[in-house]
Design a protein around this nucleic acid. Sequence first.
RNA 1: GGUUCCAUAGCUCAGUUGGGAGAGCACUACCUCGACAAGGUAGGGGUCGCUGGUUCGAGCCCAGUUGGGACCACCA
Length: 881
Amino acid sequence: MSKELKMPTKYQPQEVEAGRYEKWLEKDLFKPSGDKTKEAYSVVIPPPNVTGKLHLGHAWDTTLQDIIIRQKRMQGFDTLWLPGMDHAGIATQAKVEAKLAEEGISRYDLGREKFNETVWEWKEEYAAVIREQWAKVGISVDYGRERFTLDEGLSEAVRKVFVAMYNKDLIYRGEYIINWDPKAKTALSDIEVIHKDVEGAFYHMTYPLADGSGSVEIATTRPETMLGDTAVAVHPEDERYQHLIGKKIILPLMDIEIPIIADEYVEMDFGTGVVKITPAHDPNDFAVGNRHNLPRTNVMNPDGTMNDLTGKYTGMDRFEARKAVIKDLETQGRLVKIEKMVHSVGHSERTGVIVEPRLSTQWFVKMEPLAKEAIDLQKTEDKVNFVPERFENTYLSWMENVHDWVISRQLWWGHRIPAWFHKQTGELYVGMQAPRDSENWEQDPDVLDTWFSSALWPFSTMGWPDEDSEDFKRYFPNNTLVTGYDIIFFWVSRMIFQSLEFTGKKPFNDVLIHGLIRDEEGRKMSKSLGNGIDPMEVVDKYGADALRWFLSNGSAPGQDVRFSYDKMDASWNFINKIWNASRFALMNMEDFTVEQIDLTGNKTIADRWILTKLNKTIEKVTDLFERFEFGEANRHLYHFIWDDFCDWYIEMSKEILFNEDEEAKQTTRSVLAYVLDQTLRLLHPVMPFVTEEIWENIPHIGESLVVAEYPVVRPELSDEEATEGMDVLMELIRSVRNIRSEVNTPLSKPVELLIKTNDVKIESFLKNNTSYIERFCNPENLTISSMVRAPETAMSAVITGAEIYLPLAGLINIDEEIVRLEKELAKWSGEVKRVKGKLSNAKFVDNAPVAVVEAEKVKEKEYLEKQTLVLERIEILKTQI
RNA sequence: GGUUCCAUAGCUCAGUUGGGAGAGCACUACCUCGACAAGGUAGGGGUCGCUGGUUCGAGCCCAGUUGGGACCACCA
């Protein structure tokens, strides 16, 4: 070992990563270069909710973005990656309320202002945690531009958008059935409702006709809502019930008369064909009610208890009331049967409680014109490019069937709706600021759906509504958005239509969609299962680089991935391999400097070969990055580093570094240093910490890998002849090893007596055997066996003499070796037969592309050659028996 | 009901416009040789869910089918 190394023999991520991120920040390397001569490349982070810590999904999401941004930065783009967080209205408010509840306090005890102050404190606390986590994962965002959805500029953008949409009739206020969360006591949009199959029941009951001529049977899953029934409906063409249409019926328990109406909404084949109509508690019934001018009787309070229109049930919780209603119906003999059934019930995404369809006055966004614009965009050349493409269908089908969007929320934490009502006249005013005589006006108490502000994120963070802002002009539209398929509807779709509406442009060119991270058993990670894995624990154990490698390696785009400690081990192993290869290079560099790197010297075939392989790897990886195929790119890097560089090139370089003269060593050191440098650059976007650490130790010029140039193909370094020659050499070596392994007896020194190469010695590859030489090798009793016969061109480049012979006598069991060779012969014969069959098929020769046919001919020749060689060896061995 | 994904080695998964089935882990044998034993070398293991079709040629394209998952809609 010729050089003292600071690097330990094992890769220790904790030591490598400590302090590195802070150094990058100190040097301000993540800031856009602002170089106007370069193309801009921008990404905005999907702002995480300030509700808590980040999970593995966030780590995945940000890692992918960081890989993209780091590569683009190295490629010279003027890159902006803008960080930020989302106030996450309902989610955050629910968390803070839960925390307050532990202290026995409700938000009403504090009042709106005080409560919001508490939430701001919470926000600061969690924002700090999130920034710490970002740092640990190593993401290269520009903190100078960090934004928060509730900060001043973004709030202005929200108000501006609201007012403009209101003035364009894209926002309206009205009384409709919405999804109501009785726990959070707020309205929810359709997509905030999660439908789950639950065990419920179908309650069959009878309503008596007012004229006493009998009764009709009705079935419902929500009997408590019958207290708000204002009609009973049948299908207009239902022959069974023609005589009932227009009659009255008595609503049991309430003892009021309600009409029997005919409406095509009723399905004759379903249930009894008679439906109770509750316009205030069901969207379909609401529509029926409108057609027939039915009263809307709302029987519930905002918290899900029955209101004072329900008589004896007043104050009961809705589920308590359900039981009571059923019991009373049974007492009256009106309960026919209870049929158990599994049905789909809406639950609040945030609080988990069962959502109540409820009549309520809310603000809505009129979706039809916005959706149309967004759909039309996808028919143009300038469409948003979804990766993988199939998610465009998901997005479009949602857009095509979208309903109006409820945007008001009965919460305190969020953007207050810029609408005021006159205290006396009730007149409505919508504007950026309160009306002048503000004392006479009262602002709408509601806030906006969180997604209303996040929909503006790609441009509101860039200075919009100031369209002359530098960032907006330079970095909008964004280039790429990275997010999970689970929020295409919530976020991606809304960014697209709002961006089109307000900037006239799509918000981003590409959307890279990834899946979810599951646990090792393939289950979703969830709090209730307790199977969540904290990314920080993974980083502490394996390092951020290993986690990033795993995350970018995990799966094909758009597919879910299972977290796996086995794979984390494999990731660590790979980095350890890189680490040790680098140690080897450094040990043999003496005081080698970057100025001494000279690739024009007398290179060995191995030198020329690895430089060629490097070029191919650069080309492949660059291409795959363009298509966001990081997993495939990683596989190429892995193979290049482990198989080509470590297993072959480093081993061959030892012959030079340990034995040759100084001049030869300098050339090898140059290649080692160059290839390592280029490899570290290629790896840096994926594993920024360890690559930077190693790079600092090897000869290099530049401040940091973060801003070092990304490798490009250098055609002058490629050498196809060297590739052919190396193929021969490698095959030779493998053949020798193969014999040894098969018969479990090592080969011996005479190998080197018979193999002469121009510039590469292969002893080191067979070195294991030397200790056996004395014991097993009897030079007087040598068997000659031909091993490899290479094409003449390659031969002349590599090996003197047309054939390689290995002396095997006394070293192997000839019978066993013959058995093994006959197996091999069968394999080659099979291949020859297959290829010959193909080539003798006129249809193949006529139809297949010329290149394919030519390739088959080459294969034929190659297989025949192998077949002959193996046959020859068998013959020779047989003479020895 | 609609859309969609998955089914490839014991396990987890790749497979890039159709042209000789791959990786990691696990397993077997051997190897402490001046980067790495969390390593090296060699090896075993697959009728690519099933059935048809298109094609000279299908893991890949088409139709159907089985099983599993996801999403959307509906569910009085």
